[in-house]
Simulated scan of single mutants.
Amino acid sequence: MDAFASEFAWIVWLVLILLFVTMEMVTLDLTFLMIAAGSVGGLASALIWAPWWLQLIIAAVVSMALLFGIRPPLLRVLRRGGDPARTNVDALLGMDGRVVSTVGTSGGQVRLANGETWTSRLSPGLDRQVVEPGERVLVTAIDGATAVVIPAERKPS
C-alpha cells in the first residue's frame, strides 16, 4: 500500500492543484491559490520519490508559509488601487434633492440630484414634522427602498 501511494501520489497532487485553482477562480481571495502552490510543492516532492507523509508535510509547510507570509502583503497591494468612486447606496448618502410630494415622518417623495425619485421620510428627532414640495433635502440614510432625509440648510442671500 505504501509503495502504491508513493508511486501514484503525483496524480493526486495534480487533481488537488486543479481543484484548488478552480476554487480560486470562484472566490478570488488568493487563499486557494496559496494552497494550490503548496500542492505544487507536494507534487515536486512526489516526483523525487519522497514518502507520502513527507509530501504532505512539504505541501502543508509551503501552503502555510504562503498563506501567512505572502498573501497578506499581496492583498494590501492589490486593494490599494481600488476605485475611490462611491457606488450604490454609498453614492446616495449626502446627496441633495427636492421634495416632490410632502415628506413627513411617515412618507413622501423626493427627486434626488441624480434624477431618481425615491420614497422618503424625515429623519427621526427633527423639530420639523413635514417638508413641503420644492424644498431642498439631504439624504442621511437609506432604509430598504426609502431615503431618510433632513431639510437642507438655506444659503444666506
Rank of each mutant, 00 (worst) to 15 (best):
L18V: 15
S45F: 05
G108H: 00
M64S: 11
T140G: 07
A50D: 07
R98N: 09
L47M: 13
T102A: 12
G115L: 09
G115M: 06
S39W: 02
G42I: 00
S6T: 12
S120Q: 03
T117D: 08
D96K: 14
P124M: 09
A141V: 07
V21T: 07
P124H: 14
S63C: 07
P51S: 09
R136Q: 15
V100G: 00
I17C: 01
P51Q: 06
S63P: 00
L93F: 08
V139Y: 00
L67I: 12
G41W: 00
P84R: 09
F68L: 13
F8A: 10
F20E: 03
A36Y: 00
I17V: 14
G115K: 06
L75I: 15
Q129I: 14
N114I: 05
P73E: 08
S101L: 13
L78N: 04
L18K: 12
Q129P: 00
P124V: 11
L43F: 07
G81P: 02
R76M: 08
L112M: 11
L30E: 01
L122I: 07
P124N: 10
L19V: 10
S101N: 11
A44S: 07
L75F: 07
F32V: 01
Q109N: 13
V137H: 04
L43T: 02
I35K: 04
V139S: 02
E116S: 15
A60T: 13
S39M: 05
V89R: 09
G107W: 09
F32A: 01
T27L: 13
D127G: 13
G134S: 04
V12Y: 02
A91P: 08
A141M: 12
R76C: 05
E116Q: 09
Q55D: 04
